[in-house]
Write a protein that binds this DNA or RNA. Structure first.
Lengths: 343, 343
DNA sequence: CGAAAAACTGGAAGCGCTTCCACTTCCCCG
DNA sequence: CGGGGAAGTGGAAGCGCTTCCAGTTTTTCG
């Protein structure tokens, strides 16, 4: 079970070689004050000569600071994480953490086993803080997250109430932009494909869209729930068409679902955008490659990651950062052009 | 700098409450032998009552097993990680690790700072093993990875020689499939967009393609290097067209570059697949959504992740797993259909 | 039934570092 | 020049757990 754990130099050895106390050596490698210039240099030389690198585990145990934070993605769908959305979040998180010396541990909790581990982790001081994403409606993790004394930053509001720390995109506002775009371009028979009913994002996007329409006095013809996947979107679109044969606008709670819906629309001989204008949500790479390219609500995903990480760092350091809502905006492409009905 | 580090129960407390020695308690929570049934149960009860969860840091320090592995992605391009490829790898890695109790720490080493951290990590026993991906040609990390006594599994062969442990996709074989497909469907004027010249993937894909053509006695009209990005592909295509106005087949070393190339081809009034058949490499989600849908070499990305993780676990446990080459296959879609020249 | 083997037990010694504390030394100024 | 505070210093006590070891008890069997 072992693979030659070659012994590495310890702080004691460094101290000895430098002719100082271990305390002093420790101060030097942590860059703490109260060390004379001479000793500091002696230690630095010893460190160099020995190739000393402090053992993080020992540091963690002694200092009670682990030096790592967790990004946990909780979901039931195994593939959810494959959504480029998360890759983008991670890039943001990672960029922010690079400024600190916190490590990022990634936990995909999409199986019962995974959820167990997350739970355990929340209790076990294996990290200095946690970022939690993609919680489902009544996810017990939400509550667990409150019990732990570890700082927890939520990515996206959970349905279970407003946590102390979170970062979210302005889903409601973004959805409203979609509604306004339809109104402005003369669409009068909109339908929507929402996400799972038990997620906050889905709810917020549906609410925003409905509000936007309501302000213009336009009724929402129909709503069907998808599951944020392409196939889910295709299926939802089938159901919508069965009930409302002639919509002239479609808003979906994610780009993936929009892509699926496009497929269904095409299969039914409906043209986009002539017959039906389509707006998605997210604006990741794939939205540019659909046929036609997708008009979609853009959210600053990378920033979301960055801000989550920053907020967590703040919380760990003892500040009490304020929650953040990041702005969304509409990226107009051909599936719902700016000009009223192209046909 | 602290946030109420509420004291958690320690093993000593558990032992005391159960009326056994700490040694025995330790044995129980590690499920080791040499504990009587009675004591075992007493400890288990105490654990339950106290809500004890072992402190992973202390375990790590004492046992010299950290309980974590690193997935490091080294690259110069900040955005590279956003490629869905990595998300898929992570899903695989994570699935494999879930069977163990190793945590996954993710390190995006795309800045000098990040590379420093990776280097430090390699020396510092902060993890039990490392998976290394996306090394560039003469990346010094390759050498560093050999010096450390930590097990290192490479994802994709580095250019610097064959490491002891690696998992790779059959890039060469896959590229050959692409060539054979062109040959079979009557294409005779193929060109290629390769990746950065200093990556092993790019080299292998170029070699495989060339070989496949050579076997049929067909010359490769032209090659241009892209950088695995969409824009790079578009630019490379421009250069290709400037030198070779009438290719009838294009193979690119990645789907993203194929997408860019499609744009350029369209701009030049060339039809796909009638005028030019296009084959990409990777077969991730986006390949299905191009216009026309992309024929592409499929590689089992998730498996790649899974196998890397398994191999690393094996190496950590002291076995000496064999390197692995995973098979690739051609996914035929409309950009290079099975029938000879549709027009 | 007795000896050897196997299963238990718990004390004690760490794992490699941080940090409290009690001093000693140095420097600045009135 | 003397007093007070800042800076420097190292001993020692942990951080919370694993594991070696030496001894004790129980099993197994010829």
């Amino acid at each position: 079970m072992e693979s030659s754990p070659k012994r590495m130099p310890t702080l004691d050895e460094v101290a000895q070689r430098a002719g100082v106390s271990r305390t002093a050596a420790s101060r030097v490698i942590n860059n703490a004050p109260h060390v004379s210039r001479a000793k500091r240099e002696a230690v630095e030389r010893a460190v160099r000569e020995l190739g000393f690198v402090p053992n993080p585990t020992a540091q963690a145990l002694a200092s009670r600071r682990v030096g790592a934070v967790v990004l946990a993605v909780s979901s039931d769908e195994p593939g959810l994480f494959a959504d480029p959305f998360f890759a983008e979040v991670i890039v943001g998180v990672s960029a922010a953490l690079e400024q600190t010396d916190l490590e990022l541990v990634l936990l995909l909790a999409n199986t019962p086993r995974g959820r167990d581990r997350l739970e355990r982790l929340l209790r076990s001081r294996r990290a200095d803080g946690v970022m939690l994403m993609a919680l489902r409606g009544d996810d017990p993790l939400g509550r667990l997250a409150e019990q732990t004394d570890l700082p927890v930053v939520f990515g996206g509001l959970p349905l279970t109430g407003e946590p102390r720390w979170y970062v979210d995109a302005d889903n409601r506002g973004g959805a409203r932009l979609a509604a306004e775009h339809f109104v402005r371009t003369g669409r009068r028979r909109p339908v929507m494909i929402t996400g799972q009913l038990d997620t906050q994002v889905a709810a917020a996007r549906e609410q925003g869209f409905t509000e936007g329409l309501a302000l213009a006095g336009i009724p929402l013809l129909g709503v069907e729930a998808g599951d944020f996947t392409e196939d889910g979107g295709a299926a939802a679109m089938e159901r919508l068409l069965a009930a409302h044969p002639a919509p002239d606008a479609l808003f979906t709670a994610s780009d993936a679902m929009a892509i699926g819906a496009l497929r269904t629309l095409r299969a039914h001989g409906l043209r986009v955008p002539e017959d039906v204008a389509v707006i998605g949500f997210n604006d990741l790479a794939s939205a540019r490659h659909t046929a036609p390219p997708l008009t979609t609500v853009h959210q600053p995903v990378r920033s979301l990651g960055r801000e989550m990480a920053r907020m967590l760092v703040g919380a760990i350091e003892g500040d009490d950062p304020s929650p953040l809502i990041l702005p969304t905006r509409l990226t107009v492409r051909e599936s719902a052009p700016d000009v009223p009905t192209g046909a």
